[in-house]
Design a protein around this nucleic acid. Structure first.
Lengths: 149, 149
DNA sequence: GTTTTTGCAAACCATTTGCAGGGTC
DNA sequence: GACCCTGCAAATGGTTTGCAAAAAC
């Protein structure tokens, strides 16, 4: 007998789960995009997904890829990065506030938690008089594996 | 008798001084762009400068505006920001490593120094095993004036 | 059945580039 | 005088949009 699990149409995908939770419709194209994203090994661009869709013969329009990324980004299931090169890339992530360490060699990225940033924000507020509502921190370097090889 | 000041062709503009120091030629178009930037009250886009040039009847080609911004950005006299909206903007700044607090209402921006970030970077390196080479921190909120009004 | 979502193709818009002429050092 | 820089206009490339058909709830 199978274990009791709540009925779900999201295939266990956290991306689809987030969409469902936020009241978005679970359509075939969105499932496809979620699948494409899940297959990415590192950060990816909209173009990467479009190319992957084509090579896998998954029928998803370019516009839909962009629209889905926008929705996922809105609900925090995906984050848009600005790479040092100036390019944009996305990474799938937990819909909680956090930051990323991104490997400049292989593109791997890891979530990092606060690590004391909150204190810095408070310090800056005190020193400058600004009221900080939002912040973005991106760290770039070499991941453990790329340092080793 | 005028005070002794070193002979300079840069009109006292820090932007031009940086260009000169880095060995770039001080051309009329670059002077014009520097002037346009100096006139900006808050962060600005390349399009802002082009529009301003047109309205002031300053003859500077669009391409030159972009090329000059690129050079200034390379030498750190200007920094390119990624606004929360996803738009790009530039701010003039001291050519030293630092970060910005940006007002989301009026666009004003202030430089902020380290404020403890270095320690955070070290913590993250220790926890994740990454070797961080580069980082970017952007703070967004309301400047003192905009909080008051 | 109503409301969302999709695909397509065209539209957009910021940015880049090739190249011949002009300016700077 | 050599090399750097500019303007122009065309090319580029990522992203958005209008709209009618299709799908989800």
């Amino acid at each position: 007998m199978r274990p009791m699990v709540p009925y779900a149409l999201n295939d266990g995908s956290p991306l689809l789960a987030s969409l469902e939770r936020e009241g978005y419709r679970l359509t075939a194209p969105r499932r496809a995009v979620a699948g494409l994203i899940a297959a990415q090994r590192s950060h990816f661009s909209a173009a990467d997904l479009v190319a992957e869709a084509r090579s896998r013969r998954v029928g998803v329009g370019r516009a839909t890829v962009f629209r889905t990324l926008e929705v996922l980004s809105d609900i925090g299931a995906v984050e848009r990065l600005d790479l040092p090169s100036g390019d944009h890339a996305y990474v799938a992530c937990e819909p909680l506030h956090h930051h990323h360490a991104v490997c400049t060699r292989c593109g791997r990225s890891d979530d990092i938690e606060d690590a004391g940033l909150r204190a810095i924000v408070r310090t800056v507020e005190r020193r400058t008089g600004y009221r900080i509502d939002e912040h973005r921190l991106e760290l770039f370097g070499l991941c453990p594996d790329c340092q080793a090889s």
